[in-house]
Design a protein around this nucleic acid. Structure first.
Lengths: 187, 187
DNA sequence: CATCTGACAACACTTGGTGTCATCAGGCTA
DNA sequence: TAGCCTGATGACACCAAGTGTTGTCAGATG
């Protein structure tokens, strides 16, 4: 017989998302999360470096997903075409996760500290994408500008989608990319 | 005779920037900052809501500066032209502050928590700019996409300028805007 | 069977952040 | 002059986030 219930990190993530959604981030102590998951506060910090990070455990894979999608774009594509393909592939992956994404985004949007962390995670995605673009032969500052713009478009589209827009995320991202092209063409 | 030395907030900001630059953000306690400024820890938190905010006291005026600059752009300008004019005006204001800007940026870039706060402040600038664009008749999602892109360009240029580029900030921002136009035109 | 390992509890500690009350210089009013 | 009010501060107690350290034991390893 196992000495402890398996998957403590998973139980902590589940408990944290529930509690944050129920009473809010600040009204939830790490002790509360730990108790609901059946462990101690100390064990929480063995699995997550801080209270916020429990909501961002998948961000490493998330970044890698972006990177792989961009790296897989056709070599003949222009910088914007390649990041557009990347965003399209990433967006498609959110197809079945609509409800979870919205709950999570609502929790994050409701708390400034969580929103800070979200922005940092997306900034690290942009940094990684810029690196891929450079490896694909794009010079600076075009690589960084393109990557940052792409992430800004994705974030803008994602927030609209999570907040109100009932279309598929792919459609919203595609529309926002078209808007970017139109805005740039007129200025 | 005054009971206390005047301008406690200013002394705290000065002390904090010095200490963060000397030993780093995490190696500096609020107590350290307060002692150097000649007050108590409690007084620090009377002037700043948290330890990080002592480096972001001017961000309200910063945002207003952006907003006023955008609001003052010619009504005939396209969205991108108007934010370009806004960024140019803001960039010009950094002319004499090069050394201070670089020290402050180095401190912020060296610590993840401070960088988080910086991103949130810039995100609030983007939100404010989008509102101005909507007031100028730009529809969604073009207003948000344009504002977020503008801030992304500014941040990218600012970081390059603070890190290495010896030109004037205006020149770097202008170059990055041109790069954005070129990238968008090819994709 | 003996040992090692990894995940956890228990506990003490530092630091960020808050609530509360006392203090007192300078301004205001009588 | 005397008395009162105000605002910025110190002093102190407190909670919660996060860390270092030690002990424990189920299961794997030999």
């Amino acid at each position: 017989m196992a000495r402890w219930e398996p998957d403590a990190p998973g139980r902590l993530q589940q408990a944290a998302l529930e509690l944050f959604a129920e009473r809010g981030f600040e009204q939830t102590t790490v002790e509360d999360i730990a108790v609901r998951a059946g462990v101690t506060k100390r064990t929480f910090f063995r699995h997550f470096p801080d209270k916020r990070e429990v909501l961002f455990a998948g961000s490493e894979e998330f970044r890698r997903f972006f990177v792989d999608a961009l790296a897989g774009a056709p070599a003949s594509a222009s910088p914007l075409e390649s990041v557009a393909a990347c965003l399209d592939e990433v967006s498609a992956a959110f197809h079945g996760r609509r409800e979870y994404s919205r709950i999570r985004h609502r929790v994050i949007a409701a708390n400034a500290e969580l929103y800070e962390r979200e922005l940092v995670k997306l900034a690290s995605v942009a940094t990684a994408l810029a690196e891929v673009l450079r490896a694909r032969g794009v010079d600076e500052p075009a690589a960084t500008v393109t990557a940052e713009t792409a992430v800004a478009v994705f974030r803008t589209a994602f927030e609209r989608w999570a907040d109100a827009d009932d279309r598929d995320l792919r459609a919203v991202v595609g529309e926002h990319l078209d808007v970017l092209r139109a805005v740039a063409a007129r200025g």
